[in-house]
């Protein structure tokens, strides 16, 4: 008698458990980014018109992207995090502080970025000069096509930087 009731209880529990797992998975998937959001994840920017030490902000995946041609007089000129495009060196990074995602402001006279939220500082290659940010500004996946750059795709140069753990 009790064996039979136990069996029924376990069978019910197992089916209810399966159902709950299924429902949890469905709930998780409902919260996932939509396909349209993921599909819109590529942006092409043209670097040919950039001026030295002048910060431009582009948009990729809704995030600001810092684009700056770094001049020889900038202390960060020899940093390996800069991307060589022809004879020029470019600083390209997601313009969100790696601490909690505020947009740092660039001060050209100091050659550095200062975050308005918690006071983090970065140099013109995105390296941290002052905590709390735990890591340099993130370089987004990119692919070079002449003087054009496609963001969201991993090209040869990006993979090389990745191998050197620069991104």
């Amino acid at each position: 008698m009790s064996d039979r009731r136990d069996f029924m209880g376990m069978a019910l529990g197992a089916f209810a458990g399966l159902g709950a797992l299924g429902a949890l998975y469905a709930a998780k998937r409902t919260w996932d980014p939509l396909p349209s959001v993921k599909a819109g994840g590529f942006t092409t920017i043209d670097l040919s018109g950039a001026k030295e030490n002048e910060l431009n902000t582009e948009v990729w995946r809704g995030k600001p992207i810092f684009v700056m041609k770094v001049g020889k007089n900038n202390p960060a000129y020899n940093d390996k995090r800069l991307i060589k495009v022809g004879n020029d060196r470019f600083f390209i990074a997601i313009g969100l502080c790696t601490h909690l995602g505020c947009i740092p402001t660039y001060f050209p006279e100091k050659n550095k970025f200062i975050c308005p939220c918690h006071g983090g500082q970065f140099d013109a290659a995105g390296k941290v000069l002052k905590a709390p940010p735990p890591k340099p500004l993130t370089i987004p996946p990119f692919k070079l096509e002449g003087t054009k750059m496609v963001l969201g795709e991993e090209g040869k140069e990006y993979k090389e930087m990745k191998a050197q753990k620069l991104v």
Binding site: D32, P33, L34, V37, G62, K63
Partner: peptide
């Protein structure tokens, strides 16, 4: 996943 997007948006 929490945002449903790369940045806060419609989702």
């Amino acid at each position: 996943w929490i945002r449903g997007d790369y940045v806060p948006g419609q989702a």
